[in-house]
């Protein structure tokens, strides 16, 4: 009998902890929004979430990263109320999900800040990335091998880059393949002959922290960069918040707030481009 009773407290503890999980499906009025997805968007959405919490006392916004695909998957499965996806929704995803763009993020080319190259034409970028130009001599005069940094399969930045330059990933002759933006920036900062492309937000953040890289303009960019603002990039993607077709009211309120002009200062502070009101 003693042995049998010894289990009772353990069972009680288990029963008590089982009720503690915050499931998005909880029936009581929602006070906690969980948001998962794109690592590019997470810092911005977390900042917007803080401002939203101040305006709605008692509400908590929980932001977790894991990539755009996770944002889509978690929203579908109900693990998250809102997903962060740093690209436009695909046709297949639009069947069961609704996307609201909240800002735009440019992708920019970066090189080491000692690299004398000034600007590149799209044709030169294609030549650099497909092995047509293997040294820097034709564009900067320096007789050094180009180290081409590409992104890993499945990344939103890679997709956008390929689409913009009309390339397939099989055509690219990469010397180094990286995962997230920070890894790319660290690699280029450590290699004077490297060229890579990363989110403008990430590149500006690194520049502000005196990482030795520089952003390369594409010479086709129509508008000259405005003073104090990052140059609008032709290589841009929408940063999108997604929900299922019937989101909870709180999620709707948050998305409306994130897409409103109340947060344009936060968007600009994270080096993204606010959407025109």
């Amino acid at each position: 009998m003693n042995a049998g009773r010894a289990w009772i407290p353990l069972l009680l503890v288990l029963a008590a902890t089982a009720g503690c999980g915050d499931s998005p499906d909880a029936r009581q009025p929602l006070t906690k929004l969980s948001i998962t997805g794109s690592s590019t968007m997470a810092p911005l959405i977390a900042a917007i979430g803080k401002r939203f919490e101040r305006r709605h006392p008692g509400v908590r916004i929980d932001v977790q990263t894991g990539g755009s695909s996770r944002g889509v998957a978690d929203t579908r499965s109900g693990l998250a109320h809102i997903g962060m996806v740093s690209r436009a929704l695909r046709a297949l995803e639009q069947r069961d999900l609704v996307g609201t763009p909240v800002a735009r993020d440019g992708i920019g080319l970066i090189v080491h800040n000692t690299n004398p190259v000034g600007a590149l034409t799209p044709r030169q970028v294609v030549a650099l990335y497909t092995g047509g130009m293997t040294t820097w001599r034709p564009v900067s005069g320096k007789d050094a091998s180009v180290v081409v940094v590409n992104k890993a399969e499945g990344r939103a930045t890679l997709e956008l880059f390929l689409k913009y330059f009309h390339l397939t990933n099989a055509e690219i002759r990469a010397d180094v393949i990286i995962g997230d933006n920070e890894q790319g920036i660290k690699f280029v900062a450590g290699n004077p002959h490297a060229i890579g492309y990363v989110s403008n937000g990430a590149a500006e953040y690194a520049l502000r922290h005196e990482v030795p890289i520089k952003r390369l303009p594409l010479t086709t960019a129509s508008a000259p960069p405005a003073a104090g603002h990052p140059a609008p990039s032709p290589l841009a993607r929408p940063l999108t918040l997604v929900t299922t077709r019937r989101p909870p009211a709180l999620a709707q309120a948050f998305i409306a707030f994130a897409a409103s002009s109340h947060v344009h200062d936060l968007v600009a502070a994270h080096y993204f481009v606010p959407l025109a009101a």
Binding site: G67, S69, E153, G154, G179
Partner: peptide, 21 residues
């Protein structure tokens, strides 16, 4: 020459992979 290992492949691509991939 650069190489990719099996472990690096998983770490690089799993957050962004879906379906067959």
């Amino acid at each position: 020459d650069p190489v990719r290992t099996l472990t690096a492949n998983m770490a690089l691509e799993i957050p962004y992979a879906a379906g067959r991939h």
